[in-house]
């Protein structure tokens, strides 16, 4: 329980802002659309400036703490720096800025490197805003809805969504269980920390075996409980929470189209 209560799943930040209240389908499709626009328009500072401003505006409206949003960039820091460095040293357009032994740095390389980095940052920001303002359940519903048309080509939309729900439901339970088993084995003198790689991998067995056995037992019992409650796949199933578009979604889409149009105009017409 102790560790669990600190983990916020899918890093969802509950709130009542306009962005939070949007239909999850709107948010999911918009995040997707945003990424499409990002890749279609020509890379340029004005274009990315427009999109970046829009992103900041959304973050502001959603009342998300900027620090938390930026923390989402941490995992891609290495990719970011690699992108910048590789482009700086490999692109040879523009004027020669300076020479470092055999490496030559051109202005075009610097420009290119930072532009691509900006694109990556915008890409990650759009998905962070999505997960921070949309509860995992709402997101699952949206994914199920969006995938539904692909059912005809054999994509099990309902089953995927159900799997996601169950995973979300059981992650905290299993983490709690792992913690408990770990303590029980520590009490029997187990040592999870010292020794070489092989020894350490082996020392994990007393943790992993009971965890797997318990996960399988849980899966078994859950399947039985679901069947006992008449679960038989997605056919004929009704919904407790029905997704509904509101006026808000209409306004949001209007803004989205306007911003995209502006970006395209700057990109191609100017």
């Amino acid at each position: 329980m102790s560790m669990m209560q600190q983990i916020t799943l899918g890093q969802y930040l509950p709130g009542k802002s306009v962005v939070h209240r949007l239909d999850p389908r709107t948010k999911l499709l918009m995040a997707f659309g945003f990424i499409m626009v990002l890749f279609i328009i020509t890379a340029g500072w004005v274009e990315y400036g427009i999109l970046g401003l829009a992103a900041l505006l959304i973050i502001y409206t959603a009342k998300l703490p900027l620090g938390m949003v930026l923390r989402g960039l941490r995992p891609i820091l290495i990719i970011l720096s690699l992108t910048i460095v590789l482009h700086i040293f490999s692109t040879r357009t523009g004027t020669l800025l300076f020479r470092l032994w055999f490496l030559e740095v051109y202005s075009g390389g610097v420009n290119q490197g930072f532009l691509l980095a900006a694109r990556l940052v915008l890409l990650v920001l759009s998905t962070s805003v999505l997960t921070l303002t949309t509860s995992p359940i709402a997101l699952t519903d949206a994914i199920e809805f969006v995938l539904k048309p692909f059912k005809r080509i054999g994509l099990p939309a309902h089953e995927l969504a159900m799997m996601m729900t169950i995973a979300l439901r059981f992650i905290p339970t299993l983490i709690e269980e792992a913690e408990r088993i770990m303590k029980a084995q520590l009490a029997r003198g187990a040592d999870f920390e010292s020794g070489g790689l092989i020894k350490r991998a082996k020392s994990l067995l007393p943790l992993l075996v009971p965890l797997f056995i318990s996960a399988f037992r849980r899966a078994d019992e859950l399947a039985m409980a679901m069947e006992a409650r008449c679960y038989r796949g997605g056919d004929g199933r009704t919904k407790f929470k029905v997704l509904r578009y509101t006026k808000l979604d209409f306004y949001a889409w209007t803004c989205f189209v306007a911003v995209s149009a502006l970006a395209f105009y700057v990109s191609y017409a100017l």
Partner: peptide, 11 residues
Amino acid sequence: FQHPDNQIVAT
């Protein structure tokens, strides 16, 4: 069923 955790499906 017996195990409270293993029969609750939703979050």
